[in-house]
Design a protein around this nucleic acid. Structure first.
Length: 488
DNA sequence: TTTTGAGTTGTTCGA
DNA sequence: GTCGAACAACTCAAA
């Protein structure tokens, strides 16, 4: 009689390169794919609204894929351990397999569950799938976690380029199963809609128009990137008006595609892709690895600055609520910032260059705490990822790993002129500025009254006046950050 | 232990 | 417009 095992799905909503599913099939066991929605267990970082929207559609897609191969998906809700035990009883399963995750709340939960299930007499196996390197596989010569990307990446890239430990090279991706055994009868699944993942009020039109969640779309996205953008990534990745990036981040976050598949897809394009033309892109996979490395070793960083000197930083208190609100809504009066925040609100995504600009503006010019920005991104990004979000915001605030010199403060006007010189991006998301000439598109407040009038813009009515003076707030930020740095 | 090299993504100013 | 220098000195990682 074939043994039944539960494949506990989490952020690995794919069929290809799925170590836990593959293990069951390779052993001739009957896998029961089970997803459990347990947001309380991820607290305080339960998925935000945009992430939940994606998750809903990704689960629907996975269900289709499993059914098409003769299998199916079991959905559960509530306490993970209790649900696992219930499905074990219903199916007679003798083992539970899953792919590892690394968020602090989840590593704690998963090890607790593994202990409990083993005490029940079940076999439990957790596998590497989400990352190229486990967070503990790479360490400095002093056996410490890395705090500097370049050193981390030197070590990691050595494993990618020249196979042989340490570190071990990432193995080839596993194939997707062509057929799956049917689910055992009598196993109960809750309806997808009952998970309550979709918004109650229909604000998700922009998401629907922009994205297709699910593994097939992820694979298509990768193929498109490999065929078109990968070779021009270095030149175009910083231009927010151009589709020069992979846009794989939400697919990677939920594991609709694995980093290993992306890596091997690049290698398939040519022998020198990883070290040559696609190296800047591979580095971004490296940042993804580094972010998880940091979060694993410094689990308090989602809430607290890695650099303790920032614990008592003098964030702005006057007008803080109004300024945060203006930033969130894209009403700061700084066109590139507003364009980015509106792109985020409309599509659940923002170009990375613009993420840096809006984050610098929030933390430096508005001098509002990076945690407030991280929370907003968490709720609005379809690719919201605790490791990447934490690294990005702490880096922007200058309190995290690889902190830049404090005087490197992005000027959103200058950034706009460099990376959106024709104003295409600003005009797309701030259409009220569309008639303004290139010269003024990134600083309408500086345009002569006649020019504004000609473009049909009354500053403060059709488009906001800047909420802060850029030069003055830059000086205030410089002063505040230089004080922190002097704490020693 | 000490020393040394190096550090994602920038801006401004003055020549 | 373009270029180099200044912006400081600190931390990390490895030899």
């Amino acid at each position: 009689m074939t043994e039944t095992v539960i494949v506990w799905l989490r952020r690995d909503l794919r069929l290809a390169d799925h170590p836990a599913l593959h293990l069951a099939l390779a052993r001739g066991e009957r896998p029961v794919p089970l997803y459990i929605h347990a947001p309380l267990e991820e607290s305080p970082w339960a998925p935000g609204a945009a992430s939940r929207w994606w998750l809903h559609h990704s689960l629907a897609s996975l269900d289709l894929g499993l059914r098409a191969r003769g299998g199916g998906l079991v959905l559960g809700r509530g306490d993970s351990l209790a649900t696992l035990r219930a499905v074990v009883r219903a199916t007679g399963a003798q083992a539970v397999y899953w792919n590892r995750l690394y968020d602090p709340a989840l590593t704690a939960r998963d090890s607790r569950i593994k202990q409990a299930l083993r005490a029940d007499g079940l076999r439990c196996e957790s596998l590497k799938a989400h990352l190229l390197y486990e967070p503990w596989e790479l360490a400095t010569g002093a056996a410490e976690p890395y705090r500097v990307f370049t050193a981390f990446w030197r070590k990691a890239a050595a494993g990618l380029a020249a196979p042989g430990p340490p570190p071990p090279p990432p193995l080839a991706p596993l194939p997707a199963p062509e057929a799956l055994p049917a689910l055992p009868s009598g196993v109960a699944s809750v309806p997808l809609d009952s998970l309550g993942l979709l918004p109650r009020i229909p604000w998700d039109g922009g998401l629907t128009a922009t994205w297709t969640p699910g593994e097939p779309a992820a694979l298509t996205r990768l193929e498109q990137f490999l065929a078109q953008a990968a070779s021009t990534y270095a030149q175009r990745r910083d231009l927010p008006s151009v589709a020069g990036t992979s846009r794989l981040s939400p697919h990677l976050h939920l594991g609709e595609i694995s980093a290993r598949q992306v890596l091997w897809g690049l290698m398939r394009c040519g022998p020198d892709m990883l070290t040559g033309i696609a190296e800047p892109f591979v580095r971004e996979l490296g940042w993804r690895e580094f972010a998880h490395h940091l979060l694993y070793h410094f689990p308090r960083t989602p809430e607290e600055p890695l650099d303790g000197r920032f614990a008592a930083f003098p964030w702005r208190t006057e007008r803080a609520d109004a300024l945060l609100c203006a930033w969130q809504r894209g009403h700061t009066g700084i066109p590139l910032v507003d364009a980015g925040m509106r792109e985020l609100w409309h599509t659940g995504w923002m170009h990375n260059r613009v993420r840096m600009v809006v984050a610098a503006f929030l933390t430096k010019h508005l001098r509002l705490p990076w945690q407030a920005g991280a929370r907003w991104f968490w709720d609005t990004l379809v690719d919201a990822d605790l490791a990447a979000n934490t690294l990005g915001w702490q880096w922007s605030a200058g309190c995290g790993a690889d902190a830049a010199p404090y005087f490197r403060i992005f000027n959103p006007v200058r950034q706009g002129e460099r990376f959106d010189p024709r104003g295409d991006y600003v005009r797309r998301w701030c259409p009220e500025l569309a008639a303004l000439a290139d010269r003024w598109i990134h600083q309408p407040w500086a345009a002569p009254a006649q020019v504004l009038e000609g473009a049909g813009i009354r500053l403060g009515q059709d488009y906001p006046a800047p909420v802060v003076d850029l030069a003055q707030s830059r000086q205030e930020a410089l002063a505040a950050w230089s004080q922190v740095k002097a704490l020693g």
